[in-house]
Amino acid sequence: MDKIKKKECKVIVKSENCKGCYLCVEFCKPGALKVSKNLNKMGYYYVEPNEEKSCNGCTACAIVCPDLVIEVYGE
């Protein structure tokens, strides 16, 4: 029996440009984004993909991001 193929999606955060507003984390339903423990060059705890959860490709994070640091890949 074939398994239902899971949608392949991926979220990339350009962490050096992230100002750490965390609106993306707030509005990501599957919880695929989290706050990093590290600071970027601008001095913000940037956002990074949460490896424990998978992205569903909805682009909500990119829509709310004021700094265009998120790229969403999907089908």
Binding site: P66, L68, Y73
Partner: peptide
């Protein structure tokens, strides 16, 4: 997989706003 949110043409590339 393809990029779903292309960088808008009329926004300067990779700009970091103030």
């Amino acid at each position: 997989m393809k990029l779903k949110n292309e960088w808008p043409k009329h926004y300067k590339r990779e700009v970091i706003t103030h």
